[in-house]
Each structure stands twice: as C-alpha cells, then as structure tokens.
Design a protein around this nucleic acid. Structure first.
Length: 556
RNA sequence: GCGCCCGUAGCUCAGCGGAUAGAGCAUCGGUCUUCGGAACCGAGGGUCGCAGGUUCAAAUCCUGUCGGGCGCGCCA
C-alpha cells in the first residue's frame, strides 16, 4: 500500500466514523480523491472531499473539513492535518517517519518502487509489429520505446507481462516484397527486370539482393520465375526480420515472442476464429466474399474477412490473432501499441473482440502520433515504400540509445512530436538525459570516496537528516511507488523521464547545500547519515533509469 | 464530407476537474579554496487557438469554430 492509499484510508475512515455517529449526514461518495499539492505550504497530500460533499450534505466545505479532521488520528506517517480554504484537507508527513524511509528504501534495494496493482494478472503488450518488408524508421522507434517502457512499468506494478512482436509473413505485401526483391536480384545479374508498380523502391532492397546473390549465387535464376521469387523471398524475409531484431536491440528492446501471422493460418487458429464469429452470427457472405457484420455493431461499414479470391485479409488474421491472445492463450488484458496511421482500425478491433464474446475493455489500443523528423530546418518525411530516409538505426547511432529512449518516452503518445536530430546532437551536453545520468555518476563517486576513506555507514542514524534539502530529496524518492501505480493504471509511462529529472534535481540541490563526506571528526555522525541518504537516492535513481531501460553509469 | 489526435512561455514539451499553470532549452543576472561545475540559486517571458456551456471550481469536461497531423480499400 502506498502512502497515498494510506491518506485515502485516513480520510475515508474519518468519513465513515462521522456518518456512523451522526456528525455528518449521509451522502454517497465515490472514492476519496487524493492529490499532491504543488505548493509545499499545503502539505504533502491534499484531499478535496469536503468540496465535493458540500452540496449533498448541504453544509459548507470548511465545516465538513473540520468534522473530518477532528476524527483523523495523527498516526504513523502523519504529522499534521488541517483544513484550508476553500475546503481542502491538507496532510503533512512527519519528518521522523520520512527519515525512517531511507533505511526501508535501502532494504528494498532494486525492488523499490514495486507495487501490486497487477496482482499477477497476465497482460500482453504487443508493439512495433512492423511488416518485415523494410527497415524500421523513426516512428517505429517511438512505438518501440513506448511499448517496452510500458511493459517494464506493468511488470514493476505486479503484472505478468508478455512482450510480443507480430510480423506479417503472408499476404499481398509479402508478395510485393518478394517480387521487388526478385527484380533487384535479376538486375544484380544484369538482367532486364522491372519493379512491380507498388513495389518496394528503397535502396535497401538493392543491398538485400546483392547480399543474397553473394551468398547463393545465381541459384534462383535457374529456377522457374515463380519458384525463384518465392524461394528468394523467404530468405529475404528472414534477413529483414533478423535486421529488425538487431535494430530493436539497439534501442534495448526485447520481445518474449515473435509471432508469425502465417502460423495463424497454418495452425488453424484463423479457421477457429472465423468459426466462432460465424457461430455468433457476425459473418455474412455477399458478392463472393466473407464479411464481418460490423455495421450491426454501429460501425460505418462492414469489413471483408475473406476475399472473393478465397484469400483472407489482414483483418481476418488480426481477428485470429486476438482470438488467439484472449481465448487460446487466455491473457487477462491485452495492449496493442499502434501508430496513428492505424487509428482507423481501433473501433473495428474493439468490436471484433466484443464479437468474440470478450469484454472489449480487456483490449486497450494505445495509438501514438507520428514523429516529424527534422534535420535543422529540413523536414524529413517518413515513408517506407518510396525510399529509405532516416532509419531507426541511423537515428540511434547518431543520437545514442539513452537519448532516444528518453526523448521518445518523455512525450505523451497522443502528442505529435518533433525530433530535431541536429538539436539533439548539438545540445548533448545540456541534455536532460545526461543531467539525470550525471546525478547517478555523482552519487556513485561519493560512495566510492567514502569507501576509499574506509567510512562504514551501515549504522548511520537517519534521524539526523533534518535539512530541508534532505527532506525534499526523501519526499521525491517516496514518489516512485505512487508513480508506478499511476502509470500502470493509466498506461502512461511518459511520466518517468520527468520524474527522473525531478529526482536528479532534488539530489543536485541537496548536494549543493549539504556536505556529505566531511573530514571534520565532529561531522562523523551526519556523514554516515547522509551517506545512507545518498545510497538510497542511488537506488531510486537507478530504478527509475532501469524502468526506462536506460544506463545508470558509475562514471561519465 | 466523416472519424481520431494536436493547439499551453521565443523553441521542445509536462500538467491526475481543484489552491499562485510548470520543466528543459534559449535570454539576462548571481554562486566556486574541500565530496564530479555535465552543478546550484534567481529574473524576465502566458488573454492555456477562439466563442459559448456545465460546475462551488475548467488548460482539463461538453458544444461550436479556426488552424495543423493522420486515417476513411476485397492494401497492411
């Protein structure tokens, strides 16, 4: 239970008591709202319940507040509660309690920040899932960072998390890919060949053809064209997939499972999903095709599941995939991270899940907006088909993994973000990334110094920590578990970089004002206490960075 | 035309219906004999696109409107 929950209970218990004894009239309440006031004069936590109860209770907010505060015992972490106009209950934490948390944080170590909102429930996070017909680009990097950070946060919040990449290895686009590759392959050997009209034009296809030619020679020329195209395509696809794996690894993104679209067809899951939809009367045959009757669910149009040619659409396999996620594998919750270009499919996907008999709230679609990439003044448009502009790899190699992760993560998914490469490089010294990491390196070097001087602070007395900067740092450290809980509930990991920067500031401010390792013998006790604080700060900062899959360097 | 997203400081962006709307960068001004100055402290800078509405309380919710992005296929 977080402190915030404890505050809510403190107020909630008082309300119950007041209503039971008749001190306050009966009124329906939906939860106890607890906030963190921005003005420190308002204490550590604030509750606006009296303001909300004023109307149903027909009393002034201040009077309600007074009644409640009178019933709130100053136990445990709490030092003072008071009512403030226009009707807030402000709660302040006790300094003695705050300092004790330093020891507790050190005890928890790298596990600090973990909460139990997930309660072991199984959640699948599917992200990136770009077709392996070309290299990953900048927008994909954004999805990769959002998805992986969200997965880490959910894990810290007590969920059993599965990270998954769904890749297309069947269908039209793969045919296009195969034909494009075959054409490049023929061209490599000086044969006359034209790319298909909707083919993949990028130079990477030329490179891929050359690599395969180097490895396999003219083998595919000797086959009938159709077989050659298919054979070559299969090898090319495997290479593209391997390249994508390498690319996401550059961003420190790991997947538990790479899920093949084709396997849904081969292993009968598509048929079973279609059968279930048909059974539930959501399928209709018309004009030689098989349709999902989404208009019956309020959608604007029906969707084709199986073309008149007998070939299932991507939509059909997507239905099968979600059937597989919920019904065959039994995930409690599923989160899909999509780019804005897929926004139009969100309501259809939700309807499909409902049509399969699954409460559609169990599926969450996180749609992130596009990334506008800039090099100075030049706007670079992102298109996989028309050519190879800035790839994920180029970006990461130029800007660095940590900076990429930090910047992509710091923007909320729905914001249309701008990424100026020149700026990111020029400002690297003033980068918030390095600011946060520098705080960690600084901490480690202080502890290193203490080690060199043979200072043992295991018995440090944390009650000596009374300086405002010390207490401010502790308060900031205590925010992490609440933040993890909030992020897991809202599925918004973008708060993490902002928190890390605030924590770093709290540390730097403390460092500026409080000498840690002092050579004056009279300071021995406070030195030991502060070393404990510094060590706890290292724990929390390192945890914040690890949740973002960022490096926590010992030196820079 | 319809759907989704965005519009907050010079720039890039936070902001859970609550108290005086914040951060970084940029600008200006301070701090330094000792633990890492990649630091700290301070200042200026805002009609939260605009107009209505709901509410004790709106940057936040609703409606409309203007501007920008992305979609609207028997493509994925």
């Amino acid at each position: 239970m977080t402190v915030k929950d404890d505050v809510a209970r403190l107020v909630g218990d008082a309300l119950e008591e007041a209503q039971r004894t008749g001190a306050l009239p009966a009124a329906a309440v939906e939860g106890v709202p607890i906030e963190r006031p921005q003005n420190p004069e308002h204490g550590d936590y604030a509750c606006s319940l009296p303001l909300k109860l004023a109307k149903p209770m027909r009393m002034s907010p201040m009077a309600i507040g007074e009644k409640l505060v009178a019933l709130m015992p100053l136990r445990g972490p709490f030092d003072a509660v008071q009512v403030a106009p226009p009707g807030f209950i402000n709660v302040r934490l006790s300094e003695a309690w705050l300092t004790q948390q330093v020891d507790l944080i050190r005890q928890e170590g790298p596990a600090y920040g973990a909460v139990h909102v997930g309660d072991g429930r199984r959640v699948q996070v599917e992200f990136v899932s770009v077709n392996p017909t070309g290299p990953l680009h900048v927008a994909h990097a954004r999805g990769a960072v959002i998805g992986s950070a969200l997965a880490s946060v959910l894990e810290a919040a007590g969920y059993d998390v599965q990270r998954e990449y769904y890749f297309n290895d069947a269908g039209n686009q793969i045919d296009q890919f195969n034909r494009s590759l075959y054409a490049r392959y023929l061209q490599h050997f000086g044969r006359e060949a034209e790319l298909p009209p909707d083919g993949y034009m990028g130079d990477y296809m030329v490179d891929l053809a050359r690599e395969l030619a180097a490895e396999h020679g003219e083998r595919f020329l000797e086959m009938p064209a159709e077989a050659g195209t298919a054979e070559l395509g299969r090898l090319g696809l495997a290479r593209m997939l391997a390249a994508i794996k390498a690319d996401v690894q550059l961003l420190r993104v790991h997947f538990d499972l790479w899920f093949s679209e084709r396997s849904l067809i081969d292993e009968g899951q598509l048929d079973r999903a279609m059968g279930l939809l048909r059974e539930r009367d959501y399928v209709e045959e018309r004009e030689g095709a098989v349709w999902f009757k989404s208009t019956s669910l309020g959608e604007e149009q029906d969707k084709v599941l199986v073309r008149s040619s007998g070939v299932p659409t991507y939509f059909a396999t997507d239905v099968a995939y979600h059937y597989n996620k919920f019904i065959e594998r039994g995930f409690d919750e599923v989160i899909d991270v999509w780019g804005a270009d897929h926004q139009g499919h969100v309501s259809q996907m939700k309807q499909v899940v409902g049509a399969l008999g699954i409460p559609s709230e169990r599926l969450t679609l996180i749609v992130h907006q596009m990334v506008t990439l800039k090099r100075g003044d030049q706007v670079v448009r992102l298109s996989k088909r028309s050519g190879d502009l800035i790839t994920l790899r180029e970006l990461v190699e130029e800007v660095g993994t940590d900076a990429c992760r930090y910047f992509f993560l710091a923007r909320s998914p729905e914001s249309h973000m701008e990424f100026d490469i020149e700026l990111a490089k020029e400002q690297s010294a003033d980068n918030p990334v390095y600011y946060v990491q520098y705080a960690h390196a600084r901490i480690v070097s202080i502890i290193r110094l203490a080690d060199e001087r043979g200072i043992d602070f295991a018995e440090g007395d944390v009650s000596l920590l009374t300086h405002p900067a010390e207490l401010a740092l502790i308060r900031k450290m205590l925010l992490l578990p609440e933040l993890v809980e909030m992020m897991a509930r809202s599925l918004e990991p973008h708060h993490l970089p902002h928190y890390a920067a605030e924590l770093a500031t709290a540390f730097h401010t403390f460092y500026q004002q409080c000498r840690v390792v002092s050579s004056d013998p009279e300071d021995a006790a406070i030195t030991r206490a502060r070393l404990k604080l510094v060590d706890a700060a290292r724990t929390v900062l390192a945890r914040s960075l690890s949740l973002m899959s960022m490096d926590a360097p010992d030196q820079m």
